[in-house]
């Protein structure tokens, strides 16, 4: 199980990537910062960066709005 933004939980599975988490959460906004257990993940590494079990995942959405 992983925690997302201290509020949501997702079941963990082997090979789970950052992209999988974003897809599962329907996080489509482009201005995000992904932090896994305190480490920032580069934007171009979302498809390849694995998410470990029990991870504390933070997906910080920047302010939007016109």
């Amino acid at each position: 199980m992983i925690t997302v933004n201290k509020h949501h939980t997702l079941p963990w599975r082997e090979g789970m990537t950052v992209r999988d988490v974003l897809t599962a959460m329907k996080y489509t906004f482009p201005h995000i910062i992904v932090v896994i257990n305190g480490d920032i993940v580069r934007h171009d590494a979302y498809d390849t960066t694995p998410v470990p079990d029990e991870a504390d995942v933070r997906v910080v959405h920047m302010i939007a709005g016109g």
């Binding site: 933004n5 201290k6 509020h7 906004f29 933070r58 997906v59 910080v60 959405h61 920047m62 302010i63 939007a64 709005g65 016109g66």
Partner: peptide, 16 residues
């Protein structure tokens, strides 16, 4: 009018 403050992501999504 949202041009004063748009905080939905910080509050509702990020829980910051």
């Amino acid at each position: 009018q949202h041009d004063e403050a748009w905080l939905i992501f910080m509050d509702q999504v990020n829980h910051q």
